[in-house]
Amino acid sequence: MNFVFFAMFLILLIPIYEAWQDEYIWQKMLAFASIATKTSIMILFISVLRDDWMIGVVGVIILSVGNAALMLLAHVIRRMNEL
């Protein structure tokens, strides 16, 4: 299980690197979308790993709410490009 978690951590590094090196904002948004999903899946994984129901609930809430934040931000950034 620990090995699987470590592999997830290594994959998480890829979008972080991408967000750091790319200056175009939509590429950063893609990296953010990827990171938001991956971290919440990792939180769910931790909850099963430790058999902790409370962390699992938090993981599911973050999974749905993180995406909502992303959509709000996407709309504001789209408005910025107007005019």
Partner: peptide, 19 residues
């Protein structure tokens, strides 16, 4: 969420100059 998010991101990034 991921389906909707993919749609929203594609819409927002391609309609950058639109009204």
């Amino acid at each position: 969420w991921n389906t909707v998010l993919g749609y929203v991101l594609a819409y927002c990034s391609s309609h950058g100059g639109g009204d």
